[in-house]
């Protein structure tokens, strides 16, 4: 039986975490379908993904903003044709998929980090301190995918047909009011090759801008610790960690971040970690490949200059 991936749109295309979910789905079955809510252009982009054999596109005001209630109803209507229903572990996927699972009387498995078989998956628990292998007895599987654990499926290589989704009921119990989504030229945090993150030690929202010059030179996304977000130095969607975003870039630069386990849970799969901290005992140095002990306010301008 085929497997279905719910896509997260990113403008006119699908997000990189969606491509990671497609990669995970391909490990389960060769017949991978993608569901796109709204977004005709994104559906075309999904059709080109390597490994995708069919794209289903759902049009209509109920789907435009990815509201959980109508989206879940649609997935339930499609479910009889699929053995597995997946989504990236993005805010959208995490919002919708547990609802789908409960409607199907299935125990969801969230944030899978590896596929061991059609019914067996691995996932992190306790802020990444333990890795559990779990096997499900449910006939149908509902999963979200930890994007950092799967190399994204190539954006080109497929040539799937796009078809219209069947109509499904709209529970009409919620409505979209508005959104404040920051427009940024920078890469998306979960997809960036380089991430520069600041912590409480940045001291203010103005100082947080010190990271921008460096991020510009490295083509990096900007992240933050929870302490920096709580203090209002950085927006909420910058939070990296157990309860924020999970990133695994080639290079992660942690500036003035102590390295609490909740933060490490979100970045310790990065290929290379650099830590800048004035306290040489800071736990972040235990996971850093390169540590620089010193005052960030002195180091950051030097670093920006050194990067040319």
């Amino acid at each position: 039986m085929a497997v279905l991936v719910l896509a997260d749109r990113s403008g006119a295309t699908v997000s990189q975490p969606t491509r990671s979910a497609v990669a995970a789905a391909s490990q389960i079955d060769g017949d991978v379908h993608v569901l796109v809510l709204g977004g005709a252009e994104a559906a075309q982009a999904a059709a080109k993904l390597a490994g995708v054999t069919k794209v289903i596109q759902a049009d209509g005001p109920a789907y435009e903003h990815g509201l959980a209630e109508p989206a879940a109803a649609l997935l339930v209507a499609l479910a009889p044709n699929y053995s597995h229903l997946l989504a990236p572990g993005s805010a959208m996927g995490k919002n919708i998929m547990p609802r789908v699972a409960a409607l199907l009387d299935v125990q969801i498995i969230t944030d899978i980090a590896a596929v061991e078989g059609a019914d067996t998956f691995r996932r992190f628990i306790y802020a990444g301190n333990a890795l559990a292998t779990v096997k499900t007895a449910d006939a149908k599987k509902v999963l979200t995918v930890r994007a950092a654990s799967f190399d994204p499926a190539p954006a080109e290589g497929g040539s799937a047909a796009v078809e219209a989704a069947p109509s499904a009921e709209d529970p009409a119990v919620s409505s979209f009011v508005g959104a404040e989504i920051a427009q940024s030229e920078r890469p998306e945090l979960t997809a960036a090759r380089v991430v520069v993150s600041g912590g409480r030690a940045m001291g203010s929202a103005e100082n947080f801008h010190l990271l921008e010059g460096i991020a510009d030179k490295l083509g990096a996304a900007i992240g933050a610790s929870r302490a920096a977000v709580d203090a209002g130095y950085a927006p909420n969607d910058h939070q990296v960690g157990q309860t924020g975003k999970i990133v695994a870039p080639e290079l992660y630069i942690a500036v003035g971040i102590s390295g609490a386990i909740q933060h490490l849970a979100g970045m310790k799969d990065s290929k290379v970690i650099v830590a800048i901290n004035k306290d040489e005992e800071a736990p972040i140095f235990q996971v850093a490949d390169y540590g620089l002990v010193g005052d960030l306010f002195k180091i950051l301008p030097e670093l920006e200059q050194e990067l040319g």
């Binding site: 299935v106 333990a130 007895a137 970690i273 235990q286 850093a288 540590g291 620089l292 002990v293």
Partner: peptide, 21 residues
């Protein structure tokens, strides 16, 4: 009645501390 069985729980691979520059 649980739907999931925990096959095993392990320690994730540990990162080694690197060097100070």
């Amino acid at each position: 009645t649980p739907r999931l069985t925990v096959v095993k729980v392990e320690e994730p691979p540990k990162r080694q501390a690197g060097v100070k520059v």
